[in-house]
Every structure is written in structure tokens, then in C-alpha cells.
Design a protein around this nucleic acid. Structure first.
Length: 151
DNA sequence: GCCAACGTTGGC
DNA sequence: GCCAACGTTGGC
């Protein structure tokens, strides 16, 4: 079982949207590193943090679970979709997505500022300068440590 | 809204 | 295959 941190802009889709929808395809991944990760390493039942990026308080807002392993991201073929990719061929899809299931919101938001203030978490990708991957793996140790900050 | 960091594109 | 130009991400 692995643990992940998945970023999204709340303006686009937030933890509250996921709470309403229960499950949702995590589409729009257009980065090869991230695609390879979800294709090769992400399994049904893995746990993930829902991270809000590009907003007033970037940070971890909730917990979710991977409920469907990677499959073609059809939004890549939709000219009207935000992340349409004209080079992607439906016969051999370049881009993949997984489905996520809402678990719960955190009792309190663990902001990026707070994450950065903990030396123990300095190995996390999300606190490192210049990190632009929208999905990163979180160690079990860090996962548990972050959950302990919720209290 | 600015801009640093980094990925991608494409000319050569 | 190099690398400059360009686009995107995302914190601030």
C-alpha cells in the first residue's frame, strides 16, 4: 500500500466537490513523470492527501482513496476539454487517469507553511523548491506524522 | 499579478 | 542532440 499527495486547484475542483460527488476521475494529468507514476505505482486501495494548490492557503485539506487504477483519460481527445491534447491518439492513449474516492476532510487544514515548519517533513517533495509534479509519493512515516498534526 | 523553476518544443 | 524560446505551475 502506497501513500500519495495529489494537488488540485480548488477553483477547479476542491475537497468539498469530492465530498459531494463521493468519487471522481482525476483527469487532466499531462506530465510524463506523473503519468508513469499512476500507471506503474498507483494501486487500488492506496491512500492520498487532497492538496489545494494555487489558492489563498495551499495545503492538505482531506483524505481520499484510489478506487480505480489507471485507464485512458478521454478528456485528452475532447477538443473542448481544458487539457485537450491534439497529439494524443485514441488508439494508443498517451494520458491516463485514476478514480478517487472521498474519505474525509481533515479536522484542520495542514497548510504548506505548517508542513515546511516541520524538519521531519523536509524530505517531502511538496515542500521542496521548484517542485511542480501534481502527484508525489508520501512515505508511510510522513503520512502518519502529518495525520498526527491534525489534533 | 509577478516571476522563478522547470518541462516541452522545435530549429539547426 | 543541443539549447533557446516558450508555456505552465504554483507560491507569494
Amino acid at each position: 500500500m502506497k501513500y500519495w499527495l495529489m494537488k488540485n486547484e480548488p477553483e477547479d475542483y476542491s475537497i468539498d466537490d469530492l465530498k459531494n460527488d463521493k468519487t471522481e476521475p482525476w483527469d487532466g494529468i499531462r506530465n510524463y513523470q506523473v503519468r508513469n507514476m499512476i500507471r506503474d505505482d498507483m494501486k487500488k486501495g492506496d491512500h492520498a492527501f487532497f492538496y489545494h494548490s494555487n489558492c489563498e492557503t495551499p495545503g492538505i485539506y482531506g483524505l481520499m482513496e484510489i478506487c480505480k487504477e489507471s485507464y485512458p483519460d478521454h478528456t485528452a481527445f475532447n477538443k473542448k476539454a481544458k487539457h485537450y491534447d491534439k497529439k494524443s491518439n485514441p488508439e494508443a492513449p498517451t494520458w491516463l487517469m485514476v478514480d478517487v474516492k472521498f474519505k474525509r476532510k481533515l479536522k484542520k487544514v495542514i497548510s504548506l507553511t505548517e508542513l515546511k515548519s516541520h524538519k521531519k517533513l523536509s524530505n517531502m517533495k511538496v515542500v521542496q523548491r521548484g517542485n511542480r509534479l501534481s502527484i508525489t509519493e508520501v512515505s508511510k512515516q510522513d503520512w502518519l506524522y502529518i495525520l498526527s498534526l491534525e489534533k
